[in-house]
Design a binder for these strands. Structure first.
Lengths: 256, 256
DNA sequence: ACAGCGTACCGTACGTTGTACGGATAAGTG
DNA sequence: CACTTATCCGTACAACGTACGGTACGCTGT
């Protein structure tokens, strides 16, 4: 059921929040007997709620409850929900910037990027619902872009090609991750396993009748059904697609 | 700002609606002086609203107003909003099944599928927000699957590979289409052109300061900025990615 | 012609959402 | 000890999906 979201707040307010200076965070002492509310705590709590219950269930009231604060208190630290989501996104991007050693060879590096992104979507599935064009220009977003560009630098691609390759990977991983994540969470959200879902549909479906118009769908559908014991196998599909994708990029790079 | 949606209704009710028999639609005459309300009219109106204003703005009240009916009258013909969205999706899939002649050669056929899907997302951007796993098992969805499988039949792929290739394409096109569509609609939805958006961010951004940590991002970003006079060029990115994707699939097919 | 029934239609109401507004409280400052 | 200012939050409003119950009218049986 689950309504979903696209973050789009006031640019200036969002930027101020994104680049807020943590060094001079507290100039005033917190009120006695209170755990102080800060932008960081609000953002962290919001991410927790979104991780656990999805963007649909992310409400200002729920975040406030999570913090033991009044709903309207959040607005002291965050301009509104749209801006909050923008900042949540940038915060997660920041987290994903691990300092692991980078593999040798562009193919291994690109593969790593793809897998890191998939892992991020798995940890924070709500990110799949947040708009991407005109991203929040925060340290996390810029850092992630820089990091991913570095995987492609110096192997003979033009700047435009580097950008295009990253866009290609981002598009693919986003799409494939949707499949993986939705399959993972489908059972929990609908209260039905894949098996139960099929069992709920099948009797009705066969009752409605004539599927001779869909011979290929029947053949291929039951082939993958038998192989995975589920309507689809998103993780296997991710691996397959990633392989083809890297092959296609290799044609470009190795052709030089 | 815009909340978004994932359709997930009661399976049995959705199926009944999906496979409803149009031949015996009306057994009772419409009430005098009224244009009769039907499931088809509700669905069509809902698609119109979603096309024009986005899934965020799709409300039962608005659909009813569009039809000159009371809000609760919709529930006579449609079980609820979640089911309505499922059926809207299947209806659009049905529309896209054109009977154009299929090109010769798998590459041209797959390219056509990708472009057809992009065109569909452009016409009905809200589809990008609707969940895909456990799709509505209606005539449109099945027909679309069958149609796309037929482009890959008989060229030496296993059934599983055929399914995986389609999943790959669907994932990529979905991701790329998001970029295209969001760029197209960003101006309208935020009331700012790309230029204005940059102008709103730039002064603040340079004021915040030090971007020496992002040398590649700066170089590549301004390279594509100069080339397209915009932060990104999603349509060009779509073309580039599609080319690489087809190259990668060719490695698999031609390698046989 | 008329009674009775079943369906189509819809007004009202409830709980939930984001957030504008104004009031309360307390830390910092003179 | 007054005054300023930032923090915190209670109340209120409009918009949402939809449960519930009522009304009105076409159809069927007599």
């Amino acid at each position: 059921m689950t309504t979903e979201y696209i973050g789009r707040g006031d640019p200036a307010r969002t930027l101020a929040l994104l680049w807020r200076d943590p060094s001079r965070a507290r100039e005033r002492a917190p009120r006695k007997g209170r755990t102080e509310l800060t932008a960081d705590r609000v953002i962290a709590a919001a991410i927790e709620v979104a991780d656990a219950e999805g963007l649909a269930a992310l409400s200002m009231r729920k975040v406030a409850d999570h913090l033991g604060a009044g709903t309207m208190s959040l607005y002291t630290h965050v301009p509104g929900k749209a801006e909050l989501i923008d900042v949540m996104l940038d915060t997660v991007y920041k987290e994903t910037l691990t300092t692991e050693e980078t593999p040798r060879g562009w193919r291994a590096r690109v593969e790593r990027i793809a897998r890191d992104n998939l892992a991020m979507y798995r940890r924070h599935p709500w990110i799949l619902q947040v708009a991407v064009s005109r991203p929040p220009l925060g340290p996390g977003t810029l850092g992630k872009y820089e990091h991913e560009l570095s995987a492609l630098d110096g192997i003979g691609l033009t700047d435009l090609e580097m950008d295009n390759v990253l866009t290609l990977i981002a598009a693919y991983v986003h799409g494939a991750a949707r499949g993986v994540v939705e399959a993972e969470r489908a059972a929990a959200e609908t209260g039905m396993t894949d098996q139960e879902w099929w069992q709920a549909h099948e009797p009705f479906l066969t009752a409605v009748g004539d599927f001779s118009a869909y011979p290929l769908a029947g053949r291929v559908g039951s082939a993958s059904g038998e192989a995975y014991n589920a309507p689809t196998d998103p993780t296997g599909a991710f691996e397959f697609g990633l392989g083809r994708l890297l092959d296609g990029i290799a044609v470009l790079i190795d052709g030089r």
